[in-house]
Amino acid sequence: MSKATFGYFPGCSGLGTSLEYERSTRAVCRELGLTLWDIPDWNCCGSTPAHTVDPVLSSALSARVFAQGETAGIRDVVTPCPSCLSNLRNALEHMEDELFAARVEALTERPLEAGHSVKSVLQVIVEDIGLDKVKERVRRPLVGLRAVPYYGCLMTRPEKIMRFDDPENPQSLDLLLQALGAEVLPFPLKVDCCGGSLGIPVRESVPRLSGRILELAGELGADVIVVACPLCQMNLDLRQGQIRAKGLDYTVPVPYFTQLMAYAFGLGDEEAAFKLLAEDISPAFSCMQRRAGEIKAEEARVAALAAQKAAAKAGRTGSGQSQAKSAGAAGGEA
């Protein structure tokens, strides 16, 4: 399998609440020359509930995913969802222990060969493809868009297992957004918890935790919060109305990074799928255009000024004075 071909594990939310992530991920990967092979008849990784019950059960569900991949000759898997990634990666790490692997096999009854790996789509784009290649593809740069990146808990933690970026202050999404042309604001809550699936059993948790993230983003003047996790997106976007009812003053659209990539690559509305977001993103884009206009005007002004100065300098040197004298004259003027 070449480096640009991966087995693809969309995760259950890709068929439902994160449809826009799924669509834009496939479109962006196609654009970047990545071939994604769907794992045949994949099953749920068990998410947080499975490892709450038992890591062996969680790993057994993940092991079936890898076994299904094996039937199609897939060894290297990518997934857009950090929760799936965490479960699949944990399963591989834990199964290096012989007893643990035997316990998993007692549940799956399907022995697994060695040599499996799993990565997130973000990691593949940043590490395997590289930001230079992403930059080359940009046709509609996001100049003027003020974005804050939000990574969530699981993308970089636990450090020893995820082995990607800095666990407390990751930069990959920041750099990716900069490559797309956006202005990235430093965001102190980029790896703080959004409340996860606790929003259902403990109603208070999401307004409190996601509310903090939305409020800080609003106070920083961010146009968008860019996310990489379906559960974070659901808490920040779909539940934003619930959070506003509890006293949040801001409205911040929360797109996936792949949606912004699709937009920057000049792909159509179908691929970028902004319509599927609960909070309308068009105000953010109109802000971006206004700011882009201002930036352009400012650049034009600076360029005109520089041209004027150059012309003045050329005029003086053109009148027959020696270079040293003109420098002296310029110094005198100053």
Partner: peptide, 24 residues
């Protein structure tokens, strides 16, 4: 999914205690 019986079997075997460390 087509293999849902396989997934159900994993969960059933877990509930039956087939993955208990002592047993394995």
């Amino acid at each position: 999914i087509k293999g849902r019986s396989e997934v159900a079997a994993i969960i059933d075997r877990y509930k039956q205690g087939l993955s208990d460390p002592e047993r394995v």
